[in-house]
Structure formats: C-alpha cells, structure tokens
C-alpha cells in the first residue's frame, strides 16, 4: 500500500505543470526515500529528475517499493480539478493499476475523489555521475526565465559564458544578436534577487534555448535557481522545493559549429 498526503497540494500541481511539456510519461518511484521521477524527453536531450521527500507528506506510507507508470498529461488533467489550497492524497494498492487521488478543501467541507489509470512504461533509468562543476550560479528564477524568454526571440541557441567578468548569455540569429551580462550581486533589497557566482574556472557552453525556457516553467515553484556548468558536460539546473524536495533538469550541450 502506498499512501501520501500532501498538505501543500499546489506543489504537486505546479510540479506536474512544470515538467509535462518536457516528458509525456514516466515511472514515479515510491520508496522510503520519497516519491521520485526520472524521465527523459523523447529526443534524449533533456532529463528531469524530481524528488518529494517523505517529510513533504503527512502521513507518508510505502509498504513496499512501487513504480507507478503515469501519463503526465493525464495526471495534469486530473490535478486541474484540485484547488490550489486543497490537501492532496495519493493512494495505490500494491498491485494496483490505478492511482486514487483525493482533494480535500482546507476545512474538509469538500472532498473530491479521482482515479487515474496507470500505464506500463518501459523506462531507462540513467546513472548520473557526481560532477564537480567549473562554475555554479545561484540566481533569481524569474530573472533566468526572463533571459531565456528574451533571447529565445533571437535564436534557437544560447551560449552561456562564465568568466571573471560575470555570466554572459548570448544569442545570435538572422535579425541580429543579443547578450545579457549578469554580475555577482549580493547587495539587493530582496535576498531572492541575489546573483552568486562560484567559479572554479571559466566555461562556455551552448544550449537549445527551447529547453531552457521549458525548464523555466518551474519558476512558480521556487524563486531561486542554480545553474551548474562544466566543459563538455550536461547543464544541471536545480530548483529546490522548500525543504521538501527538488526538480533537477539536465540538458546536453550543443557541439560548437
């Protein structure tokens, strides 16, 4: 039996909204470490790895390890029936081919029950090596989203260039080019707006901005984002979900042309 009751139901709604454009389906692994999903996009360019730890839930019960094959589109459809302040409970029997979802209003005066049919999904679980990155950037997630949105107008690729001067995002296309330079700044009114750069060595990588923009849809979940860059290694973009979990995105770089 798997049962997990999430007080902040909106977290699950936002989480599914964030990843459903990138991965259409995936196996949600339920075990003592929490509820986890690792899934690649169909082009094998990007990978989503998310975790909600057991302490995200009250209660969290998982009698044995289970893997729930879920269509993110279908789950998103059902979650739209939940209000933002609803408490969401997920429930599945050990051998079930369905996931039960209960949405409970804060005062328990409205309780809705939905059932999602599960799928058999053959998914490859990738081993992600531990990496010490050349440059790590902590910044406002809204600012990152803005930069992706702006530069996507110019090109399908964005080059991120970390140097002593700061972090430079560049896009060059048919109409011209654009660049945005971010410098370390911890002297801000709101802590969430600070830009912190930890640079071991300079690095320059080019990425498909379409994916960066899709990752940035996670912004409503977290006002900070961390970018981890190393030469010839996929980008790691991490959004922490309070103290209860995270969404990490990995994106393969483009080869210089």
């Amino acid at each position: 039996m798997f049962e997990a009751r999430l007080n902040q139901g909106a977290v699950l709604k936002k989480l599914v909204d964030a990843v459903r454009d990138i991965v259409s389906e995936g196996n949600f692994d339920c075990n003592e470490n929490g509820l986890a999903l690792q899934a690649m996009d169909s082009a094998h360019v990007a990978l989503v790895a998310m975790l909600l730890r057991p302490d995200a839930f009250e209660p969290y019960r998982c009698d044995r390890n289970m893997s729930l094959g879920i269509s993110l589109k279908s789950l998103g459809t059902i979650l739209r029936c939940a209000s933002n302040d609803d408490i969401i409970t997920l429930r599945a029997e050990d051998t079930a081919d369905q996931l039960a979802l209960t949405f409970e209003s804060p005062q328990s005066d409205k309780v809705s029950e939905y059932v999602l049919n599960l799928m058999d999904i053959d998914s490859e679980h990738l081993g992600i090596p531990d990496t010490s990155y050349d440059t790590v950037i902590h910044m406002s997630s809204a600012e990152f989203q803005r930069i992706c949105r702006d530069l996507q107008q110019l090109s399908d690729s964005v080059t991120i260039d970390a140097s002593k001067e700061g972090i430079k995002f560049t896009a060059t296309g048919q109409l011209g080019s654009g660049q945005v330079m971010l410098r370390q700044n911890m002297n801000v009114d709101r802590e969430e707006d600070a830009t912190v750069i930890e640079m071991q060595q300079p690095v320059q990588l080019t990425f498909a901005v379409k994916y960066l923009s899709m990752f940035a849809k996670t912004t409503p979940l977290c006002n900070r984002v961390t970018l981890c860059l190393s030469k010839d290694v996929p980008l790691l973009l991490e959004y922490k979900i309070d103290e209860i979990g995270y969404i990490r995105y990995y994106l393969a770089p483009k080869v210089d042309s």
Binding site: A43, V45, L126
Partner: peptide, 13 residues
C-alpha cells in the same frame, strides 16, 4: 547553430 548532442552519450544506462 551547433549540433545537439544526446544525453545518452554522457549518462550510463
């Protein structure tokens, strides 16, 4: 600009 690499060339199955 640039050729897109696959994640499978970086991460082990």
């Amino acid at each position: 600009s640039g050729q897109q690499r696959s994640l499978l060339s970086f991460f082990k199955k």
